[in-house]
């Protein structure tokens, strides 16, 4: 077994185990911390695929920003971990069926997907470099890129507006 394969097995084990523990643990803060570890191991998978930029941006955005805000919310709300809402049986059944359907879709995607890494290597393009990535984003995919940025801007302005609501009504 090569080192890459061993690393992949270890990382996959950590990803799946922490993802499972995220939904299994009773304390919401422990759940959040397991999720952070899960995100880190996913960043490790990106590094195994030689995608440095994606790995680091994943760490900054998911672990560094989103999960920290999540932890803030949980810590400040001081959720009572004993206060579980009992869900009716039909909801649980529905969740299981939906999960299985989701798995079928995902397996279908993975079976039909073609690994694009080999193609990039054969063209001799340095696909890890930020320069190449930036040129592709702003030439070939410029319209979706700009749409995504407008979407993010609108979401940000909306969040600011929501937090300012009290002052406007005065």
């Amino acid at each position: 077994m090569s080192i890459i394969l061993i690393l992949f097995c270890v990382l996959s084990f950590i990803t799946l185990a922490t993802a499972f523990l995220t939904i299994y643990s009773r304390n919401p803060i422990h759940s959040a911390i397991y999720l952070v570890i899960c995100f880190f191991s996913i960043a490790g998978h990106y590094l195994l695929l030689n995608a440095q930029f994606l790995a680091i941006v994943h760490v900054i955005v998911y672990s560094g920003a989103i999960m920290i805000l999540m932890l803030f919310t949980i810590m400040l709300m001081n959720l009572n971990n004993r206060n579980d809402v009992h869900k009716p049986r039909i909801t649980r059944l529905g969740a299981i069926v939906l999960f299985i359907l989701m798995c079928v879709v995902l397996i279908g995607i993975f079976i039909n997907s073609k690994p694009i890494v080999g193609e990039y290597i054969s063209t001799g393009e340095d696909y890890q470099s930020i320069k190449v990535l930036g040129k592709i984003l702003l030439n070939e995919y410029m319209v979706p890129f700009e749409f995504a940025s407008i979407l993010l801007l609108v979401a940000m302005i909306g969040a600011v507006l929501l937090s300012k609501k009290e002052k406007i009504t005065k």
């Binding site: 930029f53 680091i56 941006v57 760490v59 900054i60 560094g64 920003a65 920290i68």
Partner: peptide, 8 residues
């Protein structure tokens, strides 16, 4: 970016 990642 690595430095910002570690900072966060």
């Amino acid at each position: 970016l690595y430095i910002f990642g570690v900072l966060s």
